[in-house]
Amino acid sequence: MTPKKPEKHAAPPAREGDRLAEYRDRRDPGRTPEPVPGDEALPRGNDDTFVVQEHHATSLHWDLRLERDGVLVSWAVPKGLPWSPDTNHLAVHTEDHPLEYAAFEGEIPRGEYGAGKMTIWDRGTYETEKWSEREVKVVIHGSRVSGRYVLFRTRGRNWMIHRMDPPADPDAEPLPESLRPMRPQERARLPRDPDAWGFEFAWGGRRLAAYVEGGRTRFTDGRGRAVDGPGGLGSRLGAQLGVRPALLDGELAVLDGRETYMVYDVPHLDGHPLLDVPYRERRERLDDLGLSGPRWQTAPWFPGDGAAVLEAARGQGLPGVVAKRLDSPYEPGEESGAWRLVPSRPKRRR
């Protein structure tokens, strides 16, 4: 006997001029937790509510919604709102949403329109400076984003969003186009003053830097050249960091038969280079990011006890240990004695 498909709950018939008709037509109120109001008259608000929702759908993006005439006028912004007037971001105009959507967070089921996790990234109030069919100027007051923005239509549903105010963080810098990684010098023995060092496993993998911005990721190799990342790593890693820009340093190693990106440094984070920040503080900031997923991990590090780490590396068949001075800066492209690679097994003399 063939099982019956679940019945789709029919949306109420649309009234002429119904601004939520497209929204209701795309959603089954019996399957999605999203608010799906009936065909009653639209509520009247103050036209001053805004929300930005982080949407982990097929492709990570952020939804900007502005209350206007009883609905939330909406744009999908793939890279999030720009933090500087130097860069415009694409904003795709989508269907109007009900006002109740400003409070919505939840998991839209697979098979439904917009399937994926939806969370509130920021919300607050806004003021309208101009509103037309081709241009919208607003002043946003949120906890994570504030300032004057303009949305302008380019073609069809495609708009652009531009920040009109100076950068939210005037000292912020974009990620570098390329960075050659710092390299350790090989030594036969561990440092004599272990309390001044942190110790990591040497993974024996391929050096890979990840440049994550707006939920997207690009990669460079050990010589700073652009390379393709492993399939699926870039988008998933970008989704975990969201809008936080970061430059990560690590290795693509084979662990338990699976390629895994082991991240062990963060030379740039949240618009600020960390090259002059001591290794200990960079590692603490990296740990705070909580990077862990099916294809990537934050590599462990151990202050002070190098002998135990070296013994563990031998037991696990790893190439060795990298000792890093706790006060060492990040020296791009340099082979520095502040980092030392100590092999698990001493080399045989010929």
Rank of each mutant, 00 (worst) to 15 (best):
G106I: 02
E284V: 00
L310S: 00
V212L: 09
A188Q: 14
P3T: 06
D228V: 13
L255C: 00
L179W: 07
I161H: 04
G306K: 01
A308Q: 07
M160I: 09
D25K: 15
K4I: 10
A168Y: 02
M118W: 12
V309W: 00
D195A: 09
G242R: 05
P3Y: 07
A76I: 14
V150E: 01
E200Q: 03
T32Y: 08
H55R: 12
G271P: 08
G124Y: 12
H56K: 10
S344W: 00
G205N: 02
E200I: 00
L208A: 03
R153T: 08
P109Q: 11
L247E: 01
R216E: 11
Y23M: 04
N46M: 15
H162C: 07
D270H: 07
P319T: 00
G204W: 06
G250P: 00
D228G: 10
M182H: 05
D195G: 10
L248A: 01
Y279F: 10
H61V: 12
P82D: 05
G229R: 03
R295W: 10
A299H: 00
V73T: 15
D265W: 01
R282E: 04
L64T: 05
K8D: 09
V136E: 09
R325V: 03
E7G: 10
V243C: 15
R283H: 03
A313I: 02
R206W: 08
G214L: 07
R157N: 07
G114E: 06
N46C: 06
G238M: 06
A21G: 13
V77Q: 00
E133Y: 08
E213G: 14
F50W: 02
P3H: 08
R218A: 06
T154N: 07
V92D: 05
P181R: 05
L90K: 03
D28I: 09
W301R: 00
Y279P: 03
V321S: 00
